[in-house]
Amino acid sequence: MLEIKNIHKSFGQNEILKGVDLQIDKGDVVVILGPSGSGKTTLLRCINFLEKADEGYANFGDINVHLKTASKKQIHVIRQKTAFVFQNYNLFNNKTALENVTEGLIIGRKVPKAEAAEIGKKALDKVGLSEKYDAYPSQLSGGQQQRVGIARAVALNPDIILFDEPTSALDPELVGEVLTVMKNIAKEGTTMLVVTHEISFARDVANRVVFMDGGMIVEEGPPNEIFSNPKEERTKQFLKRVLPEDYIYYI
């Protein structure tokens, strides 16, 4: 459904992405793991054109886009097929929870207001915020804000949702509620590409884990394979650092 080919991206002299290929099928939940600075965020941003890649193609079903030379119209089409959940939520501070969710529908997609409100309320119900339609971001906890962020993505009914470390800005006690919401939407068959350091999520929810380092994909496979039987030395080193003790023990 989504195929990414040969993405290159440099900032000045720094080559951050050095030819990344990735194939994601409908219903896949793919988790990207990797050390800080390995280019995970940059990869997601390139897919959503928040960053312009220097080279590479994105193939969305019948649409094939050259990332560097994509036209405004192509970018708009790709953005309609993708949604982004940000590390810092990035909610619109001047809009209520419901308006945050409906903004993209009404303005970006020209959905009639009443219909958009219906969709928006359903999305907020799904993330457990039925009581908070009219709350402004400043009235919500971090966990609630991120759930609005997820509802905003879900409401657009995109082909794929890109998550960039959705829980890493949260206080530890709020991480659970967001992960639960993500699990639920994964169960519904949503296609997801998730950058996270939450190993439990990768293990329990992902059907594929991709390990990135130094701007390249080092290794990928089903979670139990990657976690219990990594082939590459770099993957082993990384996992040793991030896996909980007991998990290593299991292996």
Partner: peptide, 30 residues
Amino acid sequence: VSKGQLEAAYSVGLTNVQALRRIIIPQVLV
């Protein structure tokens, strides 16, 4: 006003002008 809100606006399909008018300018004005 964080650059992130502008990016979020792009990601939900707003154009540059729409994002400025609906998200950025109202907050900048306040």
